[in-house]
Simulated assay, not measured.
Amino acid sequence: MLKRLDHVELIPSDFERSLDFYTATLGGQLKHRYALEHPTLSEVAYISVGESAVELLHAPTARALAQDGERIGYRLMAFEVTDMVRTLTELAGKGITPSWGPVEAPAFIRAEITDPDGNAIELREWKQKP
Rank of each mutant, 00 (worst) to 15 (best):
L57Q: 04
R75L: 09
E43S: 08
D115C: 06
A66L: 13
L76C: 09
W100S: 09
A78K: 03
K94M: 05
V44N: 04
A111Q: 05
L41K: 15
G118Q: 06
T61E: 15
I113L: 11
V44T: 11
A78P: 00
L41D: 01
A120N: 08
A78F: 00
R75F: 07
S48M: 02
E90D: 11
A111N: 04
H58A: 15
K94F: 05
A107E: 12
A35M: 03
V49N: 01
E55A: 12
G69Q: 02
I121L: 13
D68H: 12
A59M: 11
S48L: 01
V44D: 00
A120H: 10
A35K: 15
A35V: 01
G93R: 14
R75K: 11
E51L: 14
Y46L: 09
I109K: 14
A92N: 11
A107R: 13
R63D: 08
T114V: 14
T82S: 13
G93Y: 10
H32V: 12
A107H: 12
P98V: 03
A111D: 02
Y46K: 06
R86V: 11
A92Y: 10
P39Q: 07
T89S: 13
S52E: 07
M77D: 01
S42W: 01
E90Q: 13
E104P: 05
S99N: 05
Y74N: 01
L91Q: 08
A59V: 01
L56F: 04
V81N: 04
V103K: 11
G93C: 08
E37R: 14
A111E: 02
E55R: 01
D83N: 13
L76V: 02
I109D: 02
A107M: 11
A53C: 01
G101Y: 09
S99I: 12
I96D: 00
E43W: 03
Y74E: 00
